[in-house]
C-alpha cells in the first residue's frame, strides 16, 4: 500500500489525528494531477507530495489551521504568478481539499 494511507492508518491507530491534503482538480500546468495526496501530522511532519515548492508550503500552512479548528476546506493554490526567486514555474491552478481525520471514537 502507498505511504500516505499506511502512515494515516498508523497515526489513527495511535490515537493521533492527521490532516489529508488531496489535489481535487487542476487547471493549466501543475506539477501533479488530481488524486495526488499529502498527509500532515500535528507535529508538522508529513509524507507524500502534491508537487513540492511554494504551492505545497502554502498547503502545509493551511493544514496547521485545519489541525487546530478541524474545519475541512478547499484551498486554491495559484501557481500562475511567477515572482523572482520563486519556484512557481508551472503556471496553473490547483484545488486542494484539506481535511482533518480524527481517530475513531473508541468509547462508542
Amino acid at each position: 500500500m502507498d505511504e500516505v494511507f499506511e502512515s494515516m492508518q498508523r497515526a489513527l491507530s495511535d490515537g493521533q489525528a492527521v490532516v489529508l491534503a488531496t489535489v481535487a482538480g487542476t487547471r493549466g500546468s501543475t506539477p501533479r494531477r488530481a488524486g495526488a495526496r499529502m498527509l500532515l501530522r500535528a507535529d508538522g511532519s508529513f509524507c507524500g507530495t502534491i508537487g513540492g515548492g511554494c504551492g505545497e508550503a502554502e498547503v502545509r500552512l493551511e493544514a496547521q489551521d485545519v489541525h487546530r479548528d478541524g474545519r475541512a476546506r478547499l484551498v486554491q493554490v495559484d501557481l500562475t504568478n511567477e515572482i523572482d526567486g520563486d519556484d512557481k514555474i508551472c503556471g496553473g491552478v490547483m484545488d486542494v481539499f484539506v481535511e482533518r481525520i480524527a481517530p475513531p471514537d473508541v468509547r462508542q
Binding site: M1, D2, M8, L74, E99, I101, P103
Partner: peptide
Amino acid sequence: SRNDFAGILAEVVEAREGGAGVVVATVI
C-alpha cells in the same frame, strides 16, 4: 460521525490493498 469516517477509511485501505475497489465522494 467519526465512526462513519473510520468505517469508510477501513474500506478504503482494504480496497487499495486488493479488494474490489470503491469510490469515495466528498463534498469539497
